[in-house]
């Protein structure tokens, strides 16, 4: 565990770092440690998972291996959205893994070379890149998938909250991610939106169904727009 800590702090030499990375990659428990350390670090620095996720959208290419896979949010433009202090869920990693297991085909927002690798299966390509580079790639890719999922998750979390935040989140994504990658982000967030969340009965979720239904109901034909008051009525029964 100390080694993971050292890895995070950039104290390991390249070879040792590679070894740790592949260990972390192979060992779920170590992955949890990795995540936990970041969580602790972020909490100490008063940064949240949302901050990370925002920053991670602009995650760097493989070769630019850096011990800090969750770059400081300060490096990116801080939008009001991410200024709120929200503690990440400690079991986020587990949930993420479950989701990734369920959706093995997620493409990460990365340059062409990496997408090619992903599409064509992974391991056989390793020799072409060299073990180190490949390991780094895997980890970076994993991190970027995490980032994508986290952004999605952030959007999802906010979906339940005030709407303006969502549009800010979208803007933030727009700013940091080039077009082709943005599509990937959006594609994944579409899936991530199906992640568990608690729903408020009076939520917009149902309001939208009501609006969709109302236009087709004879009561609208009879009463016109007055019938729509059902859709925007603020009181539940």
């Amino acid at each position: 565990m100390e080694k993971i800590s050292a890895l995070m702090d950039g104290e390991l030499k390249e070879e040792a770092a590679d070894e740790q990375i592949s260990l972390v990659k192979q060992n779920i428990e170590k992955m949890d440690h990795w995540h936990l350390y970041h969580l602790i670090g972020d909490t100490l620095r008063h940064e949240s998972a949302l901050d990370q996720s925002h920053a991670k959208v602009s995650i760097q290419p493989v070769s630019q291996y850096s011990p800090s896979l969750s770059p400081s949010p300060r490096s990116s433009d801080a939008s009001p959205l991410f200024s709120q202090q929200r503690l990440p869920h400690s079991n986020f990693n587990q949930r993420l893994r479950a989701r990734l297991a369920a959706e093995p085909t997620i493409l990460s927002p990365h340059p062409v070379r990496q997408k090619t690798i992903e599409r064509s299966g992974i391991s056989w390509l390793a020799p072409f890149f060299g073990k180190t580079a490949f390991n780094n790639y895997l980890l970076a890719a994993a991190a970027s998938v995490t980032a994508v999922a986290m952004v999605s998750w952030a959007v999802l979390e906010l979906e339940a909250g005030p709407r303006p935040a969502v549009s800010l989140a979208k803007k933030a994504i727009d700013k940091t991610v080039p077009m082709n990658e943005r599509q990937a982000v959006i594609g994944v967030s579409a899936k991530a939106l199906t992640a568990p969340s608690v729903e408020d009965p009076g939520s917009q979720y149902l309001q939208e169904y009501l609006l969709a239904h109302q236009g087709l109901s004879p009561s609208t034909a009879i009463q016109g727009v007055a019938a729509y008051v059902r859709s925007v009525s603020f009181q539940g029964d």
Binding site: P164, S167, Q204, Q207, V232
Partner: peptide, 9 residues
């Protein structure tokens, strides 16, 4: 039909 919901913008 356009619905404006200022509380959620």
């Amino acid at each position: 039909v356009t619905a404006y919901l200022p509380d959620s913008q």
